[in-house]
């Protein structure tokens, strides 16, 4: 680097100042809405408006867990999204490997198909999806009722397709699959085949090859695939809105949304605390995912 002539450096300083000014304005715009959430959640008498609390307190956060609902929503979200993420990691790991290594005719059509699936708006799919899940659910109910009688509803809460954990987990996982398959396929493309071929020479079976060779090698890719699946499923509002109705199954976004609709009896302290708890995992995951963002957005279609 050479020393810039005097006129140039003045130009450079002015440019830097302009950059600071615009970035500060944009940052304020981006950050302002978060203030209310953060401050009100520690306010003993929280309101809908941003205000400086007279008393700072942790009581709102304690109430989230003392009052049963908040803790239940949190558990439901963690369970449903956790299961879906795990499922996506397993399926995309296996499927991405297959898509990377296969030489079969279906490779290209499949890859184009998952690219195009990502552009389909999920709002346009939920109507037929709901009908289809309702049919599956009724069939399952008809199958289980003669066997389990009145206990059927309790079982269906776990295994039902509508208003049950299983249906929501499967659908949430499926919606994340195209991106995750794409990430894993790209990841395996970058892994040399030598390791597997060596293992194959040694007479390792498919299962052994996956467990001993591929899983350890694929961990960074799986982390990315899992992070994106988690973020997207964690933030999703539409699917729980359509698939869940029982209060005891509600996930965080749904619980928050419905609690907020009860205009007259809103406990802003509790809700902001809950919203903040809901926000934290998303932000943490986003922080971890940051270094993958560029490749993912430019490689596929943004999700």
């Amino acid at each position: 680097m050479s020393v810039a002539p005097p006129g140039e450096s003045a130009n450079c300083v002015r440019g830097d100042l302009m950059a600071y000014a615009t970035l500060s304005l944009i940052s304020i715009f981006c950050a302002i809405p978060f203030f209310w959430l953060l401050i009100a959640s520690f306010d003993g008498n929280a309101q809908l408006f941003l205000r400086w609390p007279e008393t700072w307190t942790f009581a709102n956060y304690l109430r989230v867990f003392a009052k049963e609902d908040g803790a239940k929503w949190l558990f439901n979200s963690l369970f449903v999204v956790g299961s879906a993420t795990f499922l996506v990691m397993v399926l995309s790991g296996l499927g991405g490997y297959a898509l990377s290594r296969t030489r079969a005719w279906w490779k290209l059509p499949f890859l184009y198909a998952i690219l195009l699936i990502r552009v389909l708006p999920s709002t346009a799919l939920v109507v037929p999806l709901y009908k289809f899940l309702l049919t599956l659910n009724n069939a399952e109910g008809a199958l289980l009722r003669p066997i389990f009688g009145s206990a059927t509803r309790d079982i269906m809460r776990w295994t039902g397709f509508i208003d049950g954990y299983l249906g929501l987990i499967l659908v949430l996982a499926t919606m994340q699959l195209p991106l995750s398959l794409w990430i894993m396929k790209t990841f395996f493309d970058g892994l040399p085949r030598d390791y597997e071929e060596a293992a194959l020479m040694d007479g390792a079976t498919m299962i052994q090859r996956i467990r001993r060779v591929l899983v350890p090698l694929a961990l960074p890719g799986l982390a990315a695939s899992g992070l994106f699946a988690f973020m997207s499923a964690w933030g999703d509002f539409l699917l729980p809105l359509i698939l869940l109705s029982s209060p005891e199954l509600q996930t965080l976004p749904l619980g928050l949304f419905r609690a907020f609709l009860r205009i007259n009896e809103i406990d802003y302290g509790l809700l902001t605390a809950l919203a903040f708890i809901y926000l934290v995992p998303a932000v943490v995951a986003f922080g971890f995912a940051r270094r993958f963002l560029v490749q993912t957005f430019s490689g596929g279609v943004k999700g």
């Binding site: 408006f49 205000r51 926000l279 998303a282």
Partner: peptide, 26 residues
């Protein structure tokens, strides 16, 4: 990057406070 990380409902929630009627809204 922060707004992009916020779940939809939380984002909506925060903006209801930002945009609410009355002179106290942000």
């Amino acid at each position: 990057l922060l707004p992009n990380a916020a779940p939809e409902v939380v984002a909506g929630f925060m903006w209801i406070s930002m945009l609410a009627g009355g002179d106290h809204a942000t």
